[in-house]
């Protein structure tokens, strides 16, 4: 069975499994491009439990991005089942998906995607506005999140006043602030130099230690090495899914 990870060693350091957060069964995704139909996903099964640290790997064209869009509820599958915390998201409408994204998923993008003319604090508050929190509660939680990523002294800075690493920290604070079920990072170090990249990965490691569920989509082996479980995609199917042992710890 592809969906249950193969434990490659009995002396694994894997922690006991939590509740199932994501249950994907046989999902496919097809795009119509003019005359031809592109089958980006051809039947993927995946179970993600609470407090897992998972890397999704694969060459370009493997369906990696498509799978990430599915996991992030940005898109719905052509067929198959997708349950998020027991809720069927495969058949949800746009606005329902928006609500799931808002409450359950924290996005970290390769290009940070901060609002350029807003301060760090305003950027981090954004998901809370969509969640309908009151102003003082938003500010309190956004400040907490920024302090948690080590930017307590950069709250009123705008993105162009911050370094790349700091911007990604703001983005991570924004991903955290709604206490989502998973943090979904798409090439989080892709636009950073290797040292800053390591710092960001260390931050994700901390978040994992604090009990967060983290999914990193990457094509870099070095980044995937931080994860406890690695899923390889090829041609729209899962090629391998295994737990890593002896994970590199800083």
């Amino acid at each position: 069975m592809r969906s249950s990870p193969v434990i490659s060693s009995p002396t694994s350091t894997v922690r006991p499994k939590g509740d199932v957060v994501i249950r994907i069964e046989g999902i496919t995704k097809e795009y119509v491009m003019g005359e031809s139909v592109i089958r980006a996903l051809r039947g993927v099964d995946l179970l993600i439990h609470q407090n897992e640290y998972l890397a999704v790997m694969g060459p370009s064209g493997s369906g990696k991005s498509t799978l990430m869009n599915m996991l992030g509820c940005l898109d719905t599958p052509s067929s198959g089942r997708y349950e998020f915390n027991g809720k069927d998201v495969a058949s949800m409408e746009d606005d329902e998906l928006a609500e799931i994204r808002n409450r359950e998923i924290g996005f970290v993008f390769q290009t940070f995607n901060l609002l350029p003319r807003s301060t760090s604090l305003q950027n981090v508050e954004l998901p809370l506005i969509y969640a309908g929190l009151r102003a003082h509660e938003r500010q309190r939680r956004a400040e907490e999140a920024l302090v948690a990523v080590g930017l307590g002294d950069r709250m009123d800075h705008k993105p162009n006043e911050l370094s790349g690493g700091q911007r990604q920290r703001v983005a991570i604070a924004r991903a955290l602030v709604n206490q989502p079920s998973i943090i979904l990072a798409d090439e989080p170090t892709g636009n950073l130099d290797s040292q800053t990249g390591e710092e960001i990965m260390a931050l994700l490691e901390n978040l994992y230690d604090e009990g967060n569920t983290i999914v990193v989509v990457t094509h870099e082996e070095e980044i995937a090495e931080h994860a406890r479980r690695v899923v390889h995609l090829r041609d729209g199917v899962i090629e391998s899914d295994h737990l890593r042992i002896g994970v590199r710890k800083r």
Binding site: D94, D95, A98, E99, N102, F107, N113
Partner: peptide
């Protein structure tokens, strides 16, 4: 467009 995409990813609904 990207800002709109980001906002949607963060939970902005159509109405918003």
């Amino acid at each position: 467009t990207r800002e709109i995409g980001t906002r949607k990813a963060l939970g902005a609904r159509r109405r918003t």
